[in-house]
Design a protein around this nucleic acid. Structure first.
Lengths: 284, 284
DNA sequence: GGAACCTGTATGATGGATAATACAGCTTTG
DNA sequence: CAAAGCTGTATTATCCATCATACAGGTTCC
């Protein structure tokens, strides 16, 4: 068995720098602090900084010029996709970007207890489990694990699942979907997800867990989605509702907009990032 | 300078197991796979698995019984706070949980370019930057970095900021807030955030970036929030709108019912009061 | 009781990440 | 041109996470 210990500090610095670049804090063309400076800043040796920069370089995020410095390269290719809170990204397709789905796994079995519970399954009852990866322009950005009660799952084939949206298939089976709940969170990539998303284990991931209910209140779909944060983020517009006494933000329903100039977001140096919303025009 | 190489595989396994526990996949009382099994599953040595389990143990998530096995312990203490998408968690306060805010940093300066842009500042214009940590029941769960145009920031004092919601202070200054945009994402904890949130560097974090605009369209607040995913998550209810042709999910405006996780009946072996300190300091 | 698990504990070996240091060649600046 | 940066490239040494292995002592179950 090969032993281990993988880059840690190096990868960390790589990720931090990467975040700052993708977030727009370091604009294209800008020169990064020198290797000695970065080494001092992060209290590591220059060799380590160097490894981090090599990773950025290999990824094309940065261009190194001997004798001159390291410069931020084209970031446009790395700009994340933006979806609204209901997870709609159809506007991307309209923009000519191609999305593709790859079905990694398909089968029936007894799901873990919490999922069974959310689907209202009796102990021992089976469900269909599928794992899919969604790609945009050939690059994977989401890793979806879905569970559907067996009696629904049986109404469509594996091939159909690979080709059509699951929810559409569910509705085709005669089930009406009406309500859903979802939770957004963050995790680290485990081995399978990391492999599927072309990431290293331990990379941060955005998480979305959604349960779709039919009118009777029975769950018909349990979705667990993992997103690469550098390629996907949730975005929403809020409006102020309820005058003073009860001031609160509510989602702006007419949602389409995003017209304004690239409003980027980021915070201070050496901090956490967040993505830059994409300027998107949408049809309709 | 102390050299390095920190636990990697061990921590990874720790985090993965932790996720499964917190997510409910491994219910309280359940017995984890044995150390040899886990070692095989993750292709590591038993020593490494052991370290991961030690971390879980120290955190109180798991109880180890020599000769018997390792069992999932009380998870209720770890259940994350749930907030709706507009970031309201008032219902928690209603539940008797106390929140507290600690002001870590306060000052004025020229913000990084993307933030300046979002606030509509001219190059060189200054803004107030504050860093706060929010605690619930004494435990930190969010790390907030806010930027406000100087002319607004000057209308309140540092003490006021530490005591009252920022948005309230902004509105008190005469500014009307009407619209906001926010993006949700994920990252890894950097050094400062990790320290403030009592985490290790490299832990996953939920990210929320919100920009609040006044009616004229000028930004008046830039918020960058980092949340511990094990203590905080976003939750929302959706309803199906737009019949077939344009089927889509929209946020349910009525208040979401909290995800009641009280599956009371499960009292396994003698319940234990275990009040475990939350320190995750590893290495001694 | 005893087999078959399990967790606790100790050992030595190893290899890869990191540190520390030195020097080359290029670029920019004055 | 020369000085002062910078990146490229070695070399050597250290450290420690991990591996592999062995054995102890507890628990479960037949």
């Amino acid at each position: 068995m090969k032993s281990a210990v993988e880059p840690l500090k190096a990868r960390r610095i790589y990720l931090l720098l990467r975040d700052r670049i993708v977030a727009g804090e370091l604009s294209p063309g800008a020169r990064l602090p020198g290797e000695p400076a970065l080494a001092a800043e992060h209290a590591v040796s220059r060799v380590t900084v160097r490894r981090a920069l090599d990773l950025l370089d290999k990824e094309g995020l940065v261009q190194r010029k001997a004798g001159s410095g390291t410069f931020v390269h084209d970031t446009r290719a790395v700009r994340p996709i933006v979806a609204d809170l209901s997870n709609v990204l159809s506007h991307l397709i309209d923009m000519g970007r191609s999305t593709d789905v790859r079905l990694l796994s398909f089968g029936y079995g007894v799901p873990p207890e919490p999922i069974a519970e959310s689907l209202g399954l009796k102990p021992g009852e089976r469900a269909q489990r599928s794992v899919r990866v969604r790609l945009i322009d050939g690059e994977p950005f989401s890793y979806l694990t879905t569970h559907v009660p067996e009696w629904i799952g049986l109404t469509y084939s594996e091939a159909e699942l690979a080709a059509r949206p699951l929810l559409e298939l569910i509705e085709r089976s005669g089930v009406t979907t009406e309500r859903a709940t979802q939770a957004i969170n963050a995790t680290l990539a485990g081995p399978e997800a990391a492999a599927a998303l072309d990431l290293e284990i331990g990379s941060p991931l955005l998480t979305l867990t959604r349960i779709v209910y039919e009118p009777s209140g029975r769950g018909v779909e349990h979705l667990h989605a993992l997103y690469r944060p550098d390629r996907y983020s949730f975005h929403m517009d809020l409006v102020r509702t309820g005058n003073d006494g009860e001031r609160r933000w509510s989602p702006a329903l007419g949602w389409p907009r995003t017209t304004d100039k690239s409003k980027s977001e980021k915070s201070k140096a050496g901090e956490k990032p967040t993505r830059t919303p994409r300027v998107i025009k949408q049809r309709s």
